[in-house]
């Protein structure tokens, strides 16, 4: 490698602007989302061939529970990462929100109140993260490593080695209820939320500003975008979605332990990155994230049917994450090598 090559590598890449855009059909066929669809179909077929229990309406319905809660957070996390920030505290927010709901339960709060408290706790936690990042100008990765310990720490202080149980029957609907036949409430909620987030990111001016901030926050500020405020809103949004996931998870499990949702943050971020969102911000799509959520659900559920332990599945998830990101880079290298 010559010095010039190295400097080119160290410098942020200048954006390549083609003379003519590819036709929408070609762009669609060779997009990241298309690759994800192919991967998803391949895993689906592999699952169906590997085990006879897979192609069954109830099995497929159970499958959705694997990714819906994490997927809901991934939707908001995608926006946050596109804007150039990250939130590692989402799993801890789930734990804290669940603990607060448990506390409220002890005071005799009913189901609507419990849901409200779960969402409000998420919002407050998100706002706390957002305020630290935007008001004090701190790096979000460290701030949220800190709040991750803080939020889960509070859950541990309240609960210790105890657990809250005895959530009301009506509360169980959110995580265990079915809207129609095999279609669960969680799945319907996920579809609705995915549509809302798709609209927000791809069809509103707010969504545009998220991309602009991720690509160049300084230029965004000079263009009149209120960078700090948008980021603050995104942190709040991520917090609320974590609160929502907490309501679903608590309702599904029927109990609260301080160790609830341990390690979820890594899976959520894996979903987002697998979905084609650039970890450094600036690009990504909701379609990709939804597809990635489905892929992760398929992988874990399929391996589960084959009696593969959860910890071994995590090898697949980890390798999937690295491979899916490395492959296009290697492919591009090889193609550039041929062109020269």
């Amino acid at each position: 490698m010559t010095i010039l090559d190295q400097t080119a590598a160290a410098r942020p890449q200048a954006r390549h602007i083609p003379d003519r855009l590819d036709s929408p059909l070609k762009a669609g066929l060779f997009s990241w989302e298309m690759l994800l669809v192919v991967v998803a179909v391949a895993i689906f077929v592999a699952n169906a061939l590997a085990t006879p229990y897979f192609l069954n309406a109830w099995a497929l319905s159970d499958l959705t529970f694997n990714f819906v809660e994490k997927g809901l957070i991934a939707l908001a996390m995608a926006l946050l990462i596109i804007s150039g920030e990250i939130d590692l505290s989402v799993a801890a927010i789930i734990a804290l929100a669940s603990t607060m709901m448990g506390l409220a339960l002890q005071w005799g709060v009913g189901t609507p109140g419990l849901v409200l408290i779960g969402l409000a706790t998420g919002l407050l936690c998100g706002a706390f993260n957002g305020a630290l990042v935007t008001r004090l100008g701190l790096p979000s990765i460290v701030v949220t490593i800190g709040t991750m310990s803080l939020f889960r720490g509070i859950a541990f202080i309240v609960l210790g080695d105890q657990a809250f149980r005895g959530y009301p029957e009506s509360f169980a609907f959110f995580g265990q209820g079915y809207v129609w036949w095999v279609i669960s409430f969680e799945l319907v909620l996920f579809v609705v939320m995915a549509a809302l987030f798709w609209f927000l990111l791809h069809r509103t001016s707010f969504g545009r500003t998220v991309y602009v901030i991720g690509n160049n926050p300084v230029a965004a500020a000079f263009s009149g975008v209120r960078v700090e405020r948008v980021k603050f809103i995104l942190f709040c949004l991520t917090g609320v979605m974590a609160g929502l996931a907490s309501v679903l998870l608590t309702s599904r499990l029927g109990s609260t332990r301080p160790s609830i949702a341990m390690g979820f943050e890594l899976e959520v971020i894996t979903m987002v990155v697998l979905g084609g969102v650039a970890i450094l911000g600036g690009s990504g799509s909701i379609t990709g994230v939804v597809l990635a959520a489905i892929i992760m659900g398929l992988v874990t559920f399929g391996l589960g049917l084959l009696n593969v332990p959860g910890i071994v599945m995590s090898i697949f998830i980890g390798l999937l994450l690295i491979t899916v990101i490395a492959l296009p880079i290697v492919w591009r290298r090889v193609r550039e090598g041929q062109a020269e």
Binding site: G146, S149, L150, R152, G153, F156, I157
Partner: peptide, 8 residues
């Protein structure tokens, strides 16, 4: 159980 919150 306070340790986690304090180090956070």
């Amino acid at each position: 159980f306070w340790q986690l919150a304090i180090s956070g």
